[in-house]
Design a binder for these strands. Sequence first.
DNA 1: CTGTTAGCGCCTTCAC
DNA 2: GTGAAGGCGCTAACAG
Lengths: 316, 316
Amino acid sequence: MAAMAGVSLSTVSRVVNGQGVDADLTANVQRAVELLGYRHNHAAGSLRRSNGLSATIGLIGEDISDPFFAAFHRGAEQVARERSVVTFAASSDGSPEYEREIIETMLGRRVDGLLLLPTGKDHSYLRRDVATGTGLVFVNRPPKTIDTDCVFTDHRGGARRAIEHLRAHGHERIAFVGPGADAGFGAAERLAGYREGMAGLEEDIVVNGDLEPLVTGPEPPTAVFSAQNLITVEVMRTLFRLGLDRIVAHVGFDDIPLRGPIAPPVTMVSHDAVALGRAAAELLFSRLDGFNGRAREVVRETTLIERGTGELQPVS
Amino acid sequence: MAAMAGVSLSTVSRVVNGQGVDADLTANVQRAVELLGYRHNHAAGSLRRSNGLSATIGLIGEDISDPFFAAFHRGAEQVARERSVVTFAASSDGSPEYEREIIETMLGRRVDGLLLLPTGKDHSYLRRDVATGTGLVFVNRPPKTIDTDCVFTDHRGGARRAIEHLRAHGHERIAFVGPGADAGFGAAERLAGYREGMAGLEEDIVVNGDLEPLVTGPEPPTAVFSAQNLITVEVMRTLFRLGLDRIVAHVGFDDIPLRGPIAPPVTMVSHDAVALGRAAAELLFSRLDGFNGRAREVVRETTLIERGTGELQPVS
DNA sequence: CTGTTAGCGCCTTCAC
DNA sequence: GTGAAGGCGCTAACAG
């Protein structure tokens, strides 16, 4: 041990942890550290340390390469970094079994907490860990089987806002293009927001697949709301191909934050995944800092970015 | 300890690690584990375990929210997962000091190896760790100050191929639009590839900023190669705005893998970041498995995806 | 301010 | 096949 090179033993520990040590001895220790290429073993430390924290948190989502998840991860990292906490990240691939496996692997690595974009339905198996002090924050899906903190994007409000925006520009026949209500919590919320926004109008128009038959049909919509990014691109293409891109109004929901500008631009309901990540991490760390109140729910608002397509007037 | 609930002590260890234990005792232990909510502490284990591995690796890049990094991360995760290895990921933000800080934090967490998309110039401080058995793979930048494995995207070959493609379609005046040669290793390589591809022609045309003066000038190029994704979008826009999008041929370099299709489509030199991540992780694990040969270099080829804009004939 | 001692949770070696 | 003892690297509590 560096004790040989220096002159002390647990003084090394104090130096490493920056506690009050004589300047000369500190220098000696540092020299020995340098010489022997010593690396502090954090894990061994937390085995004995009073708080027992590993300064590690885990993030789990369906697919870590998804730009939404990546941005979320970035936000969480920003607040973790201030505490010298490192982040694990792993993909569940949409499999509840695999999700559980990853969670247990991370728990075995003694993460201090988990930021979970859940796939499975039942997470009651986490109750014991939460009771033991492990942090847990659900993201964008409500924790049904366990009472814990969560953060949300306001999918419903964002979708409603898009519809209100179109109505403010005179539209009444507004189509919703998106996955069905069974495509997960966010999608269902967006559809619900659409319905709320359409309140008082005669007809909801919900399209699941191809938009073309509708817009070329007898009673076409004057505006379209696309509820997800890939669908937004499809709608763009379809309208462009049919020469309707300056005629039918279009607002998209920014499900996946696209990197950089897309040509041509589309009016978007955008949500800030980095901020969502920050909010989630902050919730987690407040628990680790000892906050012990009831489960909290943080809702992050969306922003509507006008880019021209959502501001077209209806053409009859 | 579960020893109380069951009947044994270090038998628990054997059960957890799946070694030969009597079926009855195994059942007893598992019941106790269930009852007490016991979680295996992996870190404590690797303190004493013969190989001493933490089953953890770290990835470090400039920005974990960058879609390229995220896809790379995904690839690495795929191969790590097969070994129940978890991945740390962190952003260096382009700061060498911060990069080093993160690396040392991860080393303190006893990662078995590092996949590094380097920012700093000097990584000689890692030599000792590599000598001690820590894996290290450089990604997309050559390890100058340390002798270690690395994986590359063939930026140079991809760019050359784009130019050859355009030449095969009859072009001779081909402009390079991109960052200068000082914008990092990849960018410099792409410029070099452009120059190689242009060999034998009269004039290299290298543009750093706005393309408009060139294409509206006296001797406009008949084709454009854009060396980076955001620049590709800019070029698309410029050509579209000037009504040249069906006249000037265009090939882009897929620096950042865009999620989903972009409208309108552009012929692209594309590289597979997931495969790059897999390759890097495979190099790392082969070292951890005991491979001890010389430093290897893996080069991943790019693919040219024809989408129409790169196949336009020159118009004089 | 520094050294000593004990023990975190686990795995290994050795006896049985 | 199983139990007992020792120690991985570190920090806490105590004594000096």
